[in-house]
Design a protein around this nucleic acid. Structure first.
Lengths: 218, 218
DNA sequence: GTCTATATCCGGATAGAC
DNA sequence: GTCTATCCGGATATAGAC
């Protein structure tokens, strides 16, 4: 009946995931340099050395967090884009914009997902991280740019890229911007589902109009 | 002929400004927690203690940098907005958007100005800073929101605020986004004046269309 | 694989000479 | 006002017992 006197508190299986969760929250709130491994280890309830054991370094952990949470979002977006292609041979601007925005709003409606969206605003601290983030982002960004180029054949690629970027960052900031939450006394993402649907329609409408304007009108 | 043996290298008059310049570059590149006062002191060529003597703390210095550089931008924007009001009793959406975007593009075309634009993407690290940034931003944001509300009477205030925020962050990111510079191999802000003018027209066009779409068409 | 203890360094802030 | 020297906490990372 003597319980093992080992100090191990958790199975190895769950440790990695708990670290990723804790790290997500810390990095999202404080950024790469602002977060500390000590705090992450506390919030994940693992010893500090477990972070190094599993991830090697702070930067590696950061990238691991991004990879872990980015995957689902990119997958969902690409699936929606593919679904448009099945319905019509080439998707409309509205289809494309919706396929981009819809999964992000769903994601932001979950607690972890919202943290991940916040994290996206923080990674620009050293060139190595920027490089790795760009590599991670490319596989989901390029199909959208290509689809937009097909839907708007009159618009040059640089123009399209800039407009795509307006959409990317505008939407992310809309969902998590604490500065404007304070300035305007409005929550960034409404808590209830119907209002979130409303917000999605509003965003799609806004950006579809913008894209069409670049092509010289709808 | 004996030169004074004092160690003072610079007059006090220039010290504050050099500190602000050095701090701007460091904070813009690395964020509040990523930048170090030691590096700032080196880049400004002043001793570390001068930073504390003139500004008291790292956070105070950060806020001082923002105040110092934000001033000119806000002033120029509000002047342009006032100028529209003189030409017509109530400015059009295009006037308002242009008054918002034009000074930012001019600012970003100067080296220090570009650093300041980059800095805007970094201040979200602790509640006290967010609070102070919101306070600093309000005096220039509210007149623009009010002007938009006048120009688009059919659009609710929350909708307008969200759209305004889309514009704020989209434009800032467009001018300095290193992630997409790498992803797309395009410089964020074109180096030559005519192309900058072109970019400005493009941005104005995009956002004017978006705002009008919210009102149910132009 | 897990955990404690520690090495090593760098950060912001300050004391006090000049 | 300016500058050197220093305090001290907290950071990442690692060594080594179990």
């Amino acid at each position: 009946m003597a319980e093992s006197t080992t100090l191990r508190r958790y199975s190895a299986a769950g440790t990695r995931e708990r670290i990723l969760r804790g790290a997500l929250a810390q990095f999202a709130g404080l950024g790469l340099s602002g977060a500390s491994l000590r705090e992450i280890s506390k919030s994940a309830d693992v010893p500090l050395s477990a972070l190094h054991y599993h991830f090697g370094s702070k930067e590696n952990l950061f990238i691991a967090v991004v990879e872990h949470y980015l995957g689902g979002l990119a997958k969902e977006r690409l699936e929606l884009l593919a679904a448009c292609r099945e319905r019509a041979s080439s998707p409309s601007v509205e289809d494309i914009v919706d396929a981009f925005i819809r999964p992000l709003i769903s994601l932001a409606a979950t607690p972890d997902g919202l943290e991940y969206v916040r994290l996206q605003l923080r990674p620009f601290e050293n060139p190595s991280i920027v490089q790795q983030m760009a590599t991670l982002a490319a596989p989901s960004a390029l199909p959208f740019l290509n689809a937009l180029a097909d839907a708007l054949p009159g618009v040059s690629r640089p123009k399209l890229t800039r407009a795509y970027r307006l959409m990317v960052w505008g939407v992310v900031h809309t969902l998590v911007d604490s500065l404007y939450e304070r300035l305007t006394q409005q929550p960034a993402l409404p808590p209830k589902k119907p209002q979130q649907e409303q917000l999605r329609r509003e965003l799609v409408e806004f950006y579809v109009a913008g894209f069409h304007a670049l092509a010289g009108g709808p």
